[in-house]
Amino acid sequence: MLQQISITDFTNSAGKVQNIDVCFQLFGRKLGEAPVILVNHALTGNAQVCGSGGWWSDIVGHGASIDTDHYSILCINIPGNGILKNDEENFHHYKEFTLKDIARIQLSVLEHLNITELFAIIGASIGGALAWQLAALKPDLALHVIPIATDLKSTDWLLANCKIQDRILNNSENPLEDARMHAMTFYRTPQSLSSKFRNEKDETTNSFKVENWLEHHGSKLRSRFSLSSYKLMNHLLTTINISNDSKSAIEVAAQVKGHIHMITIDTDLFFLAEENWNTYVELSLFKNNVSIHEIKSIHGHDAFLIETDQVAKFIEPIFQQKNYTNENNKSRSVWAG
């Protein structure tokens, strides 16, 4: 069930003060009965992480890698992603906000729910970047931080693609459809599209199947997403950076207390695997409890949604603990009370 709270007098990075309405969903065990896992959604996702229509139900659910029988699962809608009708009004000046602001809002939600510690934070794409940012702001927040198909900074390549997206969103006659079609070309790979469509045409329309696929994704997004929401989410990608005035991103990441489990994708054209491996190597010089796994796939960035068997194999060892009945169990400290 979708729940809502209001964060009053929130000051964003531009200094503007306003009330922010936030929606979230809880799945699995009741708060206070089990360790809590925060799952962050990707750019066009939402808090419906599992169950009917859940975007990651292969990973989160009854008997899944993140088992709702053994954990309390929290998923928070990134404010401004279009779930609430007043999002467009609140986030019209979308460039006033940064991903750090969103992380601060999420911390306020955790405080409202009396959650002081988490068993894990997990997310992919911008949701993974948000996991990095939460851990940077509160280094002792989670025992496990699991950023998937993402980075702790916006690279020049990411900034370039987001700039093109922004130009499309502000200048096209069909901004949502056109921006989404452009985005799909770097969410996948040439090999992925060749494997799926084989240069074939649709006999009914006499157009290439890949063209129909792009148009389908454009129309689908337009039917459920607002223009202001897409502008905000695209802008937030450009603000990924956990560094601060005195420390580099690596130095900040080194202060995170929990184990960082990075998961990259070998063919990701959005958040490059090479960048993730470089981060791992640099961070390993300062932090012992950091690891990295690599998804092997022809499907590029979207592999975190497609190659769920590989994702499950990497994360299942983290979530094996099943005994939560003992009040003296050390994991009791990461329950919500």
Rank of each mutant, 00 (worst) to 15 (best):
N174T: 06
L158W: 04
S13V: 07
L283K: 10
S331H: 08
I76P: 06
R167V: 09
N328D: 08
G258K: 07
H235N: 10
T189N: 08
S57A: 13
N46D: 15
N114C: 14
S65M: 09
D178V: 06
L107K: 13
A103I: 11
L169S: 05
N90K: 15
E316G: 06
H217Q: 04
G123W: 09
N244I: 04
E327M: 12
Y324C: 01
Q106H: 15
T204P: 01
K209L: 13
E203V: 14
N323R: 12
R104I: 08
K153H: 07
K138T: 03
F225S: 14
I73Q: 04
G218Q: 11
T185Q: 10
N244W: 07
V22G: 02
D268L: 13
V39W: 11
H41F: 13
L2H: 09
I105R: 08
L107S: 06
I66D: 02
L130W: 01
I298P: 01
H62M: 03
T44K: 06
L285K: 15
V109H: 11
S291A: 07
F24P: 00
K201W: 01
D151I: 02
S331P: 00
V281G: 04
Y280N: 02
I20Y: 05
N86A: 14
H293G: 04
S154A: 14
V109K: 11
S246Q: 15
T238F: 12
L26F: 13
M233D: 00
L193Q: 09
V256T: 13
E96N: 15
E173G: 14
L2C: 04
R167Q: 10
A273I: 01
P147D: 00
A64H: 03
S246E: 10
F270R: 01
